[in-house]
Every structure is written in C-alpha cells, then in structure tokens.
Design a protein around this nucleic acid. Structure first.
Lengths: 335, 335
DNA sequence: TACTCGAACTAGAGCGCGCTAGTAGCGCGC
DNA sequence: GCGCGCTACTAGCGCGCTCTAGTTCGAGTA
C-alpha cells in the first residue's frame, strides 16, 4: 500500500480512500491510484483491513459437501451477500470433518455470522453457537436455540403432494422419510395427517430412510423384494427428498417398473437434479434462491440492527408436477 | 489479551506464548493464563494473529458448485491439509460468480496458495495467477503457466476403457466429449487413437458435449432420434464423465433401451454417483483422495521449500467394470 | 566466590490497514 | 480584505497479535 502511495505520489490514506470507494478523492487521482495498484499487483489485505476496522463483513456458510440442494442454496447466497456488501466463506462438512469442526473454522476466520445449511448437529451446540454469534439455520428447526430459521412450510408441501396423488386415484401411498434429517419430522407428520384426512389411515406406511440416493435405491430393492414375495407394490411413493427419489427411480426403472404407469414418485426440494430426468421429477419445490436470500438478510439485519430477536421465515412450497406422477391404472387384484 | 495478561499477572508476550503452545513458559503460569482466559472468554483473534505473523497457513480451494467430482476432491483435501497444519477456505464458482471472482475472494482472504479444481478460466489468467501466488491446477492442464498440475493419465484411462469395450465385441463405439472441460481434449485424442489402433477408424464418432447430466440426456435424445430415423444405435458409448453418463443412461433406459444388453455405457471419474445405480456404472476411476493429497502437498511444498519449479503429478486411472458394460449381442443387420 | 547457562519472563517494534483530526488551496459573498 | 465552506489531501495513532532482543534469576561448575 505504501508502494502504491509513493508511486502514485499520494499518501497512504488516499489510497485507502480510493480502495474503499469513499468520497474525498479526485476523479483523476482515483484513476491514477487504481492504475498504479494494478501495475504493482496490489490488493488490499483483508486481515489488516478487518483488524483496523474491527469488522470483517464476512458471512460463513456451513454446508454438507454432497447435498445437491445445498449447492443450490449456495448459488443463491453469493449474490445476495454481495449485494449487501458482505463476503462469503464456505466450509464443508464431510465424512471425516464434523459440522462442529466446519463451523469452528468459520468462526476462527472471523465470520461475523454463520449460516448453517441443514445442520445436523445437536441442538445444545446450536444454541450455544447462537449465544456466541449470529447464526441462521436453514431447513432445520431448532426450537429452543437462539438462531434464525428459514424453511419452507413442510406440511403445506406434503399436503399438496398428497392431494395431488389422491386426486390421481392413489391410495397405497408410501412415504420414505429422511430420518433425523432437516425437515423430515415435519414431512413425516404431514404425511400421516394427510393419509388420515383422506381416510387412508390403514394404508399409511413410513419406510425409514435418509436424504441420499443410496436410501432410495435400498427402498426400491425392499419394495421389489416385497413384490416378489407376493405383496403388491404401492401405487405411489413420496420420497424424503429428490436424491432419495432419484435413487428409487433408478432402482425401479432398472427392474422394469414403468414410472409413472406402474408407480408414481414424488420428490422434495426441486434441486437441479429434478429437471434432469427426461420425464422430469414431480416434486415439491423449495425456492432455494429465496431461502438463501432470507438467510443472508436475517444474518445481516441481526448484525446491523443490534440485538434483534431471532426470527423465522416460512416460505411457501409449491408442487411441481412433472413426469413421474400419473393416474393409477386399474388396481390389480390381490396378489 | 491485555486483560488476560493483567489478570494473570504476566506480560502480553507470555500470554501469546501460552496460546501458541510455545516453549518458554512455566507449567504453573501456563495453567493460570489458560484459566484466566477461559474465565474472561478470551479467544485469540486470528485476523491480528495472521497480520502479525505474516503467514496465514491457509489454502484456498476454488471449485465449481455443481460438479460432484469436485466434492469428492474436497472431501480429500480437508484431512491432508489438516495433517500438514493448514486451514482450508472454499470458494465456489457458480452461474453468477465467475472463477476469477471466486479466486480473488480467496486471495483477498490471505490464502497462501490456491488449488483450482478443474479450472475453466483462460490460461493467461492462470499463468498470471501462478506468477502472483502458488497455484495448483487439478485436472486441467495449462501448458505454459507457472502452476502445479495434478491429473490422471487420461490417455491410459480411455485406452483401458476402449480395450474393455472392444474385447466385449463392440465396434460402433461413440464418444461424447466434454467440450473444453478439463481433460476433455486428452480423452478425445485418446479415443481417436484407440479407435485407430483397433482398426475402427471408420466407426469413430465424437459427439460434442459437456460434463453435465443435461449433456448426456441431450445426446441420448439425439441417438434415439437417429435410431428412429433408421440409423442403428451405437453399441457402446464412452461418456465425457460420470454425470454425462448418468444423463445418457436416464434418457436411454427411459426409452426402453436395455443397458448393457442393447448398449454399453462407460463413464469417467468414478464420482460417488457411480456406485448409485443398482447395476453400477462402468467407469474410469480417478482416485479423488489421492489427487487431493497430491494437490495439497504440492501447494505446501512450494510454500515451504521456497522457489520450487512447478511440478506435475500423473496418477494412474483404473477401469472399474460394473454393470453398464456388457458383450455385444448379435449385430442387427443393416437397418 | 565468580562465572556461565538456561529457563522464565518482558519491552517494544511492527504487521497493513482504517479513521479521526487536521491542513492546504480555492472560490464565494459581503 | 476577510471569513466561510468546500474539496482534496495528509499525519499518525491504534486495531490485537507475533517476534526479536533483551533482562532476571536461580542452579550448576570450577
């Protein structure tokens, strides 16, 4: 910085002003400083900057590396953060790297707030985190903790999906749940409620699963095995999320089951995977861009408006009917 | 820090020593300092630490948000970096956020080196980057640039795949390439060479594509349309990567084409997607963990051993035969 | 006793910025 | 001619830490 100042024939302070885009520098000087900086290859050192300023204007984002929906969220976080003048740091949780570790990395890099995408950590930890810093949880509700919360109205989404299936004549509708994954409990509950509401209580069946392709495949195998054992296939499956639905589809299609003729499949998320299949996945759309926007805004507002109470944003999901759901054919007689 | 020092009755320097776990402090004092720090809730400020130390011991990783193989690499980068005592910062390129922007973010956060996963930026930029800092390119060869390079021997991988297919009796083998994606040029060249070597020059056909599922689906549609127009399907397809192979599989399976009976498909990468399909994707395995390890090690060694020349690591790919490749049935007569 | 030596500790400069308080120069109105 | 306000710029302190070059002190050695 001193070099730039000298070479441009100004003081360091002026260079600082130029780089902060602040008033107080002539147009001509401004250009000269920028040109010289470019020549030298100078770039403001954010460590020093944030030390001097006392603020880092940086948001940390914790995500799970393999979750495709998280990448959709990240795609939405960047522009909104930039719009509000914040930097974004990513930290991934992987098999060998726990969420806690990922979050600690963010904090030690001086993030002012952390945005947690579908966190799976214990609520006690999340609460403590919320006390220590500004935290936003996306998708995962943490009832007692001091964290903002952004999610879609899971119940509403499931209800729409179920109404859609029932309208198509489905009765044997199975739900693969997402274990203790974010949103799973709500979806499970809504599924049960919908079955009850449609008088299908007796048919209700929740198969334990996860939010992964593997889980879908496993369930597919299970259902096929049952069929081969004489038990009829369900006519529709409501999967825990799109990845699970994808796995299921692969397993079933592979075994000659025609989707949606023999069986309808509905996913959840509308992650970018959903468009991929030639016939498209019928799914409950969570607006990732909008969720990301809310998460960023919550964090920034808490940072800038002092001690706000944590808030909650509930977005409306929307059923997107594509090719994997269709009317029930004639019910085959009891096997 | 000054508070801690005062309350513990020592100098700030001593507190610094304790927190850096350095020699030069008595056991008793050490404990007292730590206890006091805990009471006050003191945490060393990494910004100041970084500024004072002049080194951040942080590696920046630029990746493309939707590329599943990148997530495999990231999973491998974390543990190796930790082992060598380095922090990792992630920065994603997305639709609205160019690679350049992602890299600049890393640099301004004081990363000492950047690891670029399958970079797509112009070589001029990469070279400039290599001059300015320690840079490692994974998968993408940048001939003239001052960057380390980690990749798999693309030619070898393709050759193995092609030998496998030819051995199974395939002759009409088509290659969907990856455009100007990392490794694509090498794979394309190796495909052509293999066809020539097997005397199949006349059958060689490269269909332009990308490293995405969409591209596979599109190609699937194209091939099906050609079939419906009277032209026979190829008997095998070598896709540009796994994602492309996946898209292709979905399109074909969906249309009633039996893989591998009617057509064999081979992918590239062995990303975690490959295991997913019930029959498994035959693919060329790139060892993500090993690649990640090399990339990290290159970066760290260049950082610590002064002005080393950029190096290149070529790993051996390995054909993984799973369920999507099989022997050619009787060749149907000319349509 | 006089010294050496190492362990335990301290003073204080400096890392690269931002920011406050200031100065220089200039056109303006009265 | 004077004060006024405005723009363009500068001096220099301080952010919270690390690190070098010390100082102090007690034990060991001749």
């Amino acid at each position: 910085m001193a070099d730039v100042a000298e070479k441009a024939g100004v003081s360091r302070a002026l260079v600082s002003i130029v780089f902060r885009n602040q008033a107080g520098a002539g147009q001509e000087t401004r250009e000269r400083v920028l040109r010289v900086a470019d020549e030298i290859g100078y770039r403001p050192d954010s460590a020093a900057r944030l030390l001097a300023r006392g603020r880092s204007r940086t948001l940390g984002v914790m995500f799970t590396v393999q979750q495709t929906f998280h990448t959709d969220l990240i795609t939405g976080i960047y522009p909104e953060a930039e719009r509000l003048g914040y930097d974004v740091l990513l930290s991934g949780a992987t098999r060998g790297r726990s969420e806690v570790k990922a979050v600690e990395a963010l904090l030690s890099h001086r993030c002012e707030a952390v945005i947690l995408l579908g966190p799976d950590a214990e609520s006690a930890y999340l609460d403590e985190l919320g006390q220590r810093t500004v935290a936003v949880s996306v998708s995962r509700r943490v009832p007692q903790a001091r964290v903002d919360f952004v999610h879609t109205a899971e119940g509403k989404g499931v209800r729409q999906a179920m109404d859609h299936l029932v309208e198509l004549g489905h009765r044997r509708i199975v739900h693969i749940d997402g274990g203790r994954g974010p949103g799973s409990a709500e979806r499970r509950r809504a599924y049960r409620a919908a079955m009850r509401r449609h008088g299908l209580e007796a048919e209700a069946r929740v198969i334990p699963g996860h939010h992964t392709e593997e889980s879908g495949i496993e369930t597919g195998r299970l259902l096929l095995a049952e069929r081969d054992g004489g038990q009829p296939l369900p006519t529709a499956v409501l999967a825990g999320n799109d990845r699970c639905a994808m796995g299921l589809l692969m397993a079933l299609t592979r075994a000659g089951v025609d989707v949606p003729r023999d069986l309808s499949v509905v996913g959840y998320d509308d992650s970018h995977l959903s468009h991929l299949m030639p016939i498209g996945l019928t799914t409950v759309r969570q607006d990732a861009a909008l969720m990301a926007e809310h998460a960023v805004r919550f964090a920034v507002e808490r940072l800038e408006k002092g001690e706000l109470e944590p808030r909650e944003a509930v977005l409306d999901p929307k059923l997107v009917v594509r090719g994997t759901s269709g009317p029930v054919l004639k019910e085959p007689g009891p096997a």
